[in-house]
Design a protein around this nucleic acid. Structure first.
Lengths: 119, 119
DNA sequence: ACAACCTGTTACCTAAAGGATAGTAATAAC
DNA sequence: GTTATTACTATCCTTTAGGTAACAGGTTGT
């Protein structure tokens, strides 16, 4: 079992950025800092889940949380420098999803997979 | 919302290869074809789940299933050519997980994330 | 006083993912 | 006839992810 180490690396990555929202959040934050409510509205995530995801991303050093003393208080979430390291991952996933979608449209499958990005 | 399309691509990819096992299976199959029981033993997955994951991967054109007429019957699972397209994704995830692990070991985090690949 | 707005939290619930265990069907070996 | 091997299915169960809804705490505006 010589490649066990690589397998664990994949699993580690999935532990940190897996799930429905984490990569999406990071991707959206590449566009610039956002407030809590902007995020809920922009990606359609419930506040409960958003709060949890943001906290986990913060623990893993991927985003920064800054409380602004506006009235009422707002909180800015932005990418920590460490998120730069995820660019390759995000680009790879993004490219593949796009290519996959085109393959589906072109009818290159015997069976019938589904794609969210086909309207 | 100019980048919505890219977001959907990411979600599509996660739909196809997300979850606990799919990428691991593909990664392991890069090593060559394997039989059902070899896979259960090698990665420690229950037969029920393995069967489901393999079928889903097959539907998405990522692996091939070949029944050999040995006695007793054996079934060979191997990568379909389409899996080649996932190499970038796997490499990116693998690299990041490894780098992340090193960052944790080096103590570059305020809080304390965990890593499977640290013994 | 009252509503409106922001960032959350809390409690509750459902659905899906995944795991444990046993069993089936075919064949062959002992 | 019993046991073993292979590739599964079937059944049951636990855990986790994620969603809904309500509300708290603070502040500003009416």
């Amino acid at each position: 079992m010589k490649y066990k180490h690589a397998r664990l690396s994949i699993q580690d990555t999935m532990d940190v950025v897996g799930g429905k929202w984490k990569l999406i959040l990071i991707f959206v934050l590449f566009d610039g800092k956002k407030k809590f409510n902007e995020l809920t509205r922009e990606i359609g995530i419930s506040p409960r889940v958003l709060s949890k995801e943001l906290h986990e991303l913060e623990v893993n050093g991927l985003i920064k949380r800054r409380v602004c003393d506006t009235k009422p208080v707002t909180v800015e979430y932005s990418l920590a420098p460490y998120s730069e390291s995820l660019k390759d991952v995000i680009v790879a996933l993004c490219k593949w999803g796009e290519a996959h979608r085109e393959n589906i449209i072109a009818g290159k499958f015997d069976m019938s997979p589904k794609s969210k990005s086909i309207l």
